[in-house]
Write a protein that binds this DNA or RNA. Structure first.
Lengths: 369, 369
DNA sequence: TTGTATGCGTTATCAC
DNA sequence: GTGATAACGCATACAA
């Protein structure tokens, strides 16, 4: 799938400018620069620059004067000039399918707060789960010369070569959540999806389920592949038969979930337990069951994934797998800071870091514990 | 509250650089520049620049050659150099309390998609509802010389003077959702909170409630002030008495909501209807009622605000006020594009734009309709 | 400890 | 249509 070729580079370059040529007639008022400070203090611009950057070879008194004058003049460093000169932006880019997904929102918050403590800024971009947009954003962020890039891929991202450009340029890239397979140029932070699938299924089994379905995401994504492997392992370990009619590998939307439910509950042979790869699907399954008068957890037990806030609000509340987004976010930043340091030594290492998951037991799998 | 003074400018300037002085020893590989393209094509850099920017006075053939060579060399415009020279970044900044709030996530998505169609990029920043961080972010985004700034303020933002710097510099600022009062230097896009409060309360009244409580946010925010005014208006219009013990103006957290509920349902005189200023509070009220065996909607009816996805999942589902985040986001961008155009004519106008709201009736106010 | 001079990559103003 | 050149604001090598 040589998708790259279909989106001409020319287009990408043009995107950064306006489609139509336009004369820049905006007259912005003059900014204060280090020259203004230099002039006011009868010092050279170089000294001002050094003082503002806390350079060791500047007299304390001078620093003090400079900061005071800077404050007085309302000076703010011009990030573009600074970045252009020093080849550093102190800015990290982030590409995520959608910020409205609970897990991502939490990870992003953790990342931002952690980066902030290291003095980095974060540019957050949404790919809307579109590969084309993801490619365009990678380009834009490269254009902005971010110091590093954090990516949660779209479901269609099988080929990651649009990140090559950044990596070749020495810009570290870190993937999390949805992670490409067979791309070894970047570090990876991910949840323990195999174990997540395993403990979710085990819970259903221990709650007495014998006929367990798995409504999974597309197996093109490592995420769902691993969860499914965990599911299979648990089933095998407990010598339970797998009914192929109860395995679904599809985008995890409400519509797809309803269709899957209808299919499974159409005939006489019905599952008594369902493991779903996200909570939206779990909720859809629950709604379906309620509408069909199928008692949960009496006749059907359900386990979801992600521990979305909605799972604790539904009736019955839904057992789900907690992914600790906060830990994921912090780990990402740790790895990133390491990479940025190592990078300085021209020693970019890559690695895979796995964050543990935990089952949160709720009413949808019967009495707790 | 002269909070500004407490956060010295010096600090803000320093924040943009690392706390410690460090030598930049990162050797990034050489980038391709327009000079490389110029050399390859035996043209001048000026022509390359013009071609890439779709300047009218460039031969079509030349443009074609330039784009092809750019693609071949994997050229990407350096945003910093371009921005430094042209004084435009094609980037819009956004500051929001938290992206994990449903309403904000939806607004941001709409803004980004709309801006994208105009060729602008979006930098999303979270203030974590901290005024200090909001101030710092305003500074950082000014440092980045964003072309415009979109802000949803924190609850503590009473004084907006930290945005003056941007506005004086000719950078348009637009507020939405939480909007400062008495700050006329910026445009405002907001929901019709007065009407929202009115129709929410009216719904309770028409459903038969006589004793209605309002669990509101702090009245320092225009948002909650307007909703409360709508509440009062509806009560007055229907000649219902207002019990001061059933009015709460507090941060809209689950904990605060539970406390308010306990207080109201402690004695014998209990409300039969509750209007809450967000859905988190509505859900907390519902949970409290369920725990206390108070039947909803039989003994108590509830209306929330924002139409959070959770309101349709709870049992019973909760009536809420829809704010049409998509429309809000699109309006913001419309206003912004206008401002950027007007700005070019040195004619920055400001205005207030109100987006209608709509009541979504659900089970918590009794039979639908 | 400070000053001088140079260049980062691009775009705008001239000139041709 | 295109080329030569200067300038954007800052950080650094080198000189003092």
């Amino acid at each position: 799938m040589k998708k790259i070729a279909s989106l001409p580079l020319v287009y990408l370059i043009q995107k950064n400018s306006k489609q139509e040529y336009s004369i820049n007639n905006v007259k912005k008022p003059q900014q204060n620069t280090i020259l203004d400070i230099a002039e006011a203090l009868k010092l050279s611009p170089a000294t001002i620059s050094r003082a503002l950057n806390n350079h060791p070879y500047v007299k304390e008194k001078t620093k003090k004067d400079v900061f005071e004058m800077a404050a007085k003049l309302g000076y703010r460093r011009n990030q573009m000039a600074s970045g252009l000169r020093s080849n550093k932006t102190n800015t990290i880019g982030l590409i995520v399918p959608r910020i409205s997904m609970f897990f991502h929102a939490e990870v992003i918050t953790a990342i931002q707060n952690s980066l902030h403590s290291y003095g980095y800024n974060l540019i957050i971009c949404q790919s809307n789960d579109s590969l084309d947009l993801e490619m365009e954003l990678a380009d834009t962020l490269f254009s902005s010369r971010v110091d590093a890039l954090i990516v949660a891929c779209t479901l269609q991202t099988l080929d990651c070569s649009h990140f090559d450009k950044l990596i070749e340029n020495g810009t570290p890239v870190i993937f999390y959540d949805r992670v490409p397979t067979g791309y070894d140029k970047a570090s990876i932070v991910k949840g323990d999806d195999f174990n997540g699938g395993y403990i979710a299924t085990k819970k259903l089994i221990e709650a007495g389920c014998k006929k367990i379905a798995h409504v999974s995401g597309p197996l093109t994504s490592n995420l769902y592949l691993d969860r499914h492997a965990g599911f299979l392992k648990a089933m095998e370990a407990h010598k339970l038969a797998i009914n192929p009619d109860w395995l679904f590998h599809q985008e995890l939307t409400t519509g797809n979930a309803e269709r899957a439910m209808r299919q499974m509950f159409d005939g006489d042979d019905r599952p008594d337990g369902i493991f779903t790869d996200n909570d939206t699907t779990a909720i859809a399954a629950l709604e379906f069951a309620k509408a069909q008068q199928i008692h949960v957890p009496g006749q059907l037990k359900i386990v979801g994934y992600s521990n979305d806030p909605r799972t604790s609000i539904s009736s019955p509340s839904i057992t789900s797998v907690e992914q600790f987004p906060d830990a994921v976010g912090k780990k990402i930043v740790n790895v990133l800071i390491d990479l940025l340091k190592n990078n300085a030594e021209n020693l970019v290492k890559t690695g895979v870091f796995t964050i543990p998951v935990e089952l949160i037991s709720r009413a949808s799998t019967g009495v707790n514990k």
